[in-house]
Amino acid sequence: MVILNYNGAHFLRKFLPGVLRHADGARVVVADNASTDDSLGLLRAGFPTVEILAFTENLGFCEGYNQALARLDSPYFVLLNSDVEVQAGWLRPLYTLLHANPRIAAVQPKVLAYDNPTLFEHAGAGGGYLDELGYPFCRGRLFDTLETDRGQYDDPRPVAWASGACCLVRATTWRDLGGFEPAFFAHMEEIDFCWRAQNAGYEVWYHGGGTVHHVGGGTLPKTNPRKTYLNFRNGLALLFKNAAPGELAGFLILRVLLDWVAGLRFLAAGSWQEAQAVGRAHLHFIMRLGYWRRRRKLAKPRLLASQRPGTYAGSVVWAYFGQGKKLFSQLLLP
């Protein structure tokens, strides 16, 4: 079990005791991204059983996990954010499912909001989905609309992606696929990994039998130009890398248009820095197009949108903003 930490001493102090209580015998490792707070001192003084991997620079979420997991020898990896509170028995259902089916690459638990435990949380909720254009959403969360957990999404099922905030990953698949895309730095890396896994013939699952509570925004707050930039840049790269050859051109054009609509919405709301972030994201994607072409060849995309579990046949942006569909159930997905 690897917790990637960057200046998260306050989260480690609060949540690590619970992680250790409910680890079910798993090895617990904290990989520290050159924190400047007292994270390392806290770990050494207060948590002597926790193994520490201390990096000399901030490698980001993607490369931080890539380098940390490369040093571990285990059949399964748990990726866990430092701002996650785990519940008793959360890990066992995930392990049982992954161990029983060798075609499953990753599985996530139910992710609820820490500040309001009755609501699903943005990062994974009741399982991750995508629309045809690569926009992510979840059972229990469409954009800013969060549903109340009433047990409606407790059933295990295949999904499009498992949350990077908390998931169990098969180590052989992780290594075969090369881990996270290092150029993403952070945001949407788990979606890219899971999409590549599906293209390689693996499955990705959600299991509501385990529950965690996620604070969210532990490193970057919800409204932040840097976060906007990463989401829009990585969103384009995600689609470019993984969409099937026959669908890429049409989907990419529509995606670019909708991204610019989002940029105009930021401008209309007076969020100049957020609008600029969208423009910078597209510019930087184009400037590195050669790199993304090479990464697309490595990803070997093959599955059409209609062939991928957890994919909505249409635009979730249009469904939400144009048709007023605010709940997952209104999308009429299986």
Rank of each mutant, 00 (worst) to 15 (best):
E57S: 14
R226E: 03
R302S: 12
T172C: 14
F285E: 03
R302I: 03
V30I: 08
T172F: 12
V215L: 10
E189H: 15
Y202I: 01
G134R: 07
L236A: 09
S163H: 04
C166E: 09
L59A: 11
A68P: 03
L20E: 03
F137K: 06
G151M: 13
G208Q: 06
A269Q: 12
A243F: 00
Q198E: 12
C138F: 00
G151I: 06
D176K: 15
G201E: 05
G322P: 11
G235F: 00
E247P: 12
P136W: 07
Y320V: 00
N116W: 13
Q307C: 04
K14W: 12
Q152Y: 15
A313K: 13
V317W: 01
K326L: 15
A100C: 12
F15D: 02
L267C: 07
W260H: 13
T211W: 01
P117G: 15
W161D: 02
V261L: 15
G208W: 01
E189I: 08
R295F: 08
K300L: 09
P309T: 13
H282P: 05
Y206Q: 00
R175S: 10
N66Y: 09
F143H: 13
V86I: 09
L16V: 12
L258R: 14
H213T: 01
F285D: 01
G179N: 06
L248M: 09
R196N: 03
G126S: 00
A269V: 05
G250D: 08
S39K: 06
L59T: 03
Y312W: 03
H10R: 11
M287Q: 14
R288P: 02
L267Y: 01
A299I: 00
R21M: 07
W318C: 11
R170Q: 04
I52W: 11
R21T: 04
H99A: 08
Q67Y: 05
E57R: 10
P17A: 11
F321I: 01
K326M: 14
G178K: 01
N224H: 11
G208P: 01
V169M: 03
G324Y: 02
F77S: 02
Q307S: 09
S306D: 07
